[in-house]
Simulated scan of single mutants.
Amino acid sequence: MHGAGGNTGADDARWLAAAARLAARGRPLSRPNPAVGCLIVRDGIVVGRGWTQPGGRPHAEAAALAQAGDAARGATVYVTLEPCAHRAGRGPACSDLLAEAQPARVVIGQRDPDERTRGRGMERLSAAGIAVATLGCPASRASLAGYLTRAERGRPHVTLKLATSLDGAIATAGGESRWITGAAARAHVHSRRAMADAILVGGGTWRADAPGLDVRLPGLEARSPRRLILSRSIEAPGIEVLPAPQAIAGLDAVNYLYVEGGAQTAAAFLAADLVDRIELYRAPIVIGGGAGAIGDIGLASLAAAHGRWHLAERRQLGSDTFEAYRRQGQDQPQDGN
């Protein structure tokens, strides 16, 4: 860690976690840029805050500095991602803006993997006499899950959503599936859709249910994600069709992919090891003999199933239970709430 100034590590982590929550406001409309959060703190009081705006500009630091004005001088800046170092036609580099504003410290939650900035933003701040601290903050990394997954794995961050009965069914034996969960859980699903760049279902689900795959929450309708279908044969005018789960790597401007079903599609993504987060909605009902939530994923032994998933979140939604699981070894993505 570079110059830590007078603040404790606990204070830095707390402010960075707050900046990460702020960053969620920019997701997913900040695309193609990552959703970044920035707080400017002086004597324990927030004097400026910002998050990446729709279309990627202004950046979080620019918005926070504009709000703070002269109060930024001598303050501490908390930012979830290393301030950019490359100048673009759409706006100045954030590291230059910060160098001009002259805060005492800049605390960074995650180094930028973009080679145009990687390390250069920090170097520019240090050259301007500003103390720089890098924490490797889990909350910052989680808030940037889509951007970092794209940079590190060459594909979007994938969330698999399941809605089941207590005995793991997604429909009755006759195919009836509306509605397994209650209104509160379904509204929560729509809030999760609003955080995604694209939403995907399998061809079987598309044929059987013709789902809207949109966001139907008042005020958030415009955040409906791109619609995708996983199929080798289906034709759906106006909707993108992918032949295999691995094709998600070629999706332009998609950092967060929300996979809703059905069982074979869920199995295909799990078998290809392309799921980063599972979001499970469980209703207090027993169906018995119903359709299972996930098809065969080629599991060789029960032992191979253990140690793969870690509980990241649990909450009650009316009579239903929501649980989120992240892949073992990965930081917990933000839920946006």
Score class of each variant (00 low, 15 high):
Asp43Ala: 13
Asp43His: 03
Gly44Glu: 09
Ile45Asn: 11
Ile45Glu: 13
Ile45His: 12
Ile45Trp: 03
Val46Leu: 05
Val46Trp: 01
Arg49Ile: 01
Gly50Thr: 11
Gly50Cys: 08
Trp51Met: 14
Trp51Asn: 02
Thr52Asn: 11
Thr52Cys: 03
Pro54Ala: 07
Gly55Ile: 14
Gly55His: 04
Gly56Val: 02
Arg57Tyr: 10
Arg57Ala: 05
Pro58Trp: 05
Pro58Asp: 12
His59Leu: 15
His59Val: 10
Ala60Ser: 15
Glu61Thr: 04
Glu61His: 14
Glu61Tyr: 02
Ala62Trp: 09
Ala62Gln: 08
Ala62Ile: 07
Ala63Gly: 03
Ala63Tyr: 08
Ala63Ser: 11
Ala64Gly: 06
Ala64Lys: 08
Ala64Asn: 01
Leu65Gly: 04
Leu65Val: 10
Leu65Gln: 00
Ala66His: 13
Ala66Asn: 10
Ala68Ser: 07
Asp70Ile: 07
Ala71Val: 11
Ala72Asn: 11
Ala75Ser: 03
Thr76Cys: 01
Val77Gln: 08
Val77Asn: 09
Val77Arg: 05
Val77Cys: 08
Val77Trp: 07
Val79Ile: 15
Thr80Ser: 09
Thr80Val: 08
Thr80Ile: 04
Pro83Arg: 00
Cys84Val: 15
Ala85Trp: 09
His86Asn: 02
Arg87Met: 10
Ala88Trp: 15
Arg90Leu: 12
Arg90Ser: 12
Gly91Asp: 04
Gly91Trp: 00
Pro92Asn: 01
Ala93Met: 00
Cys94Tyr: 07
Ser95Thr: 06
Asp96Asn: 10
Asp96Cys: 13
Leu97Lys: 00
Ala99Gly: 14
Ala99Leu: 12
Ala99Asn: 07
Glu100Leu: 14
Gln102Ile: 07
Arg105Met: 02
Arg105Leu: 10
Arg105Ile: 01
Val106Ile: 05
Val107Ala: 10
Val107Pro: 01
Ile108Cys: 03
Ile108His: 06
Ile108Asp: 05
Gly109Lys: 13
Gly109Met: 10
Gly109Cys: 10
Gln110Leu: 06
Gln110Tyr: 00
Arg111Ser: 15
Arg111Ala: 14
Asp112Arg: 12
Asp112Ser: 14
Pro113Trp: 08
Asp114Ser: 14
Asp114Gln: 11
Arg116Ile: 00
Arg116Leu: 15
Arg118Ile: 13
Arg118Ser: 12
Arg120Trp: 02
Arg120Gln: 14
Arg120Met: 05
Gly121Ser: 04
Gly121Phe: 04
Glu123Ile: 13
Leu125Cys: 05
Ser126Lys: 13
Ser126Gly: 08
Ala128Tyr: 12
Gly129Asp: 13
Ile130Phe: 02
Ile130Val: 09
Ala131Asp: 05
Val132Tyr: 12
Ala133Pro: 04
Ala133Tyr: 11
Ala133Glu: 12
Gly136His: 01
Gly136Gln: 08
Cys137His: 14
